[in-house]
Amino acid sequence: MEWLVGFAPFAMVLGIIWLVQRGKLEEKKLAATAEATGEKAAQYASRVQELEDRVKVLERIVTDRGYDIATQIEALRDTVKVESRDAGIPLNLNDKEKA
């Protein structure tokens, strides 16, 4: 029982050191989490600003006088049709030259 009385202060010191180290570790974890959260918030804010700028441009295009959406869509469709057609001289690969 006497050894327990002699061991108690040593155990208390070890316990205090362990608690202090654990507290420091928790603080580091919180700081790392806060930093990562701050970085993500900044990235989201940047992305939101980009999207807001794009919406402003689209609003300006749509509300611009003389802008005809239907005409622009048809022009785009015509471009796609032209690009999908064959161009140049048709090749008839089944007919080979006879020597």
Rank of each mutant, 00 (worst) to 15 (best):
G23F: 03
I16W: 10
Q49G: 07
A45H: 08
I17S: 14
A31N: 14
I69L: 15
L14V: 08
I73D: 11
V48H: 10
T71E: 15
V55P: 01
A32R: 13
R60L: 07
E74N: 15
T33F: 01
D64E: 14
V20Y: 05
R54F: 06
Q43I: 01
R65P: 08
V48F: 06
E27H: 04
V48G: 02
A41R: 01
G15C: 04
V57Q: 14
A34P: 00
P9V: 08
L19C: 10
I16L: 11
W18F: 03
I61C: 07
L58N: 12
A32T: 03
K40C: 04
G15F: 03
V20P: 06
Q72C: 08
E26W: 06
E27Y: 02
K40E: 07
I61P: 01
K28I: 00
L58S: 06
G15P: 05
K40I: 01
Y67N: 11
S46V: 02
A34W: 00
L51P: 10
G15K: 05
K29R: 09
E39I: 00
E27C: 02
D64P: 00
E50C: 08
T63D: 13
Q49D: 12
L51W: 05
L14Y: 09
E26A: 06
S46L: 08
G66P: 10
G15W: 02
Y67C: 02
I69F: 14
V48D: 13
F10V: 09
E26P: 05
P9D: 08
L58E: 04
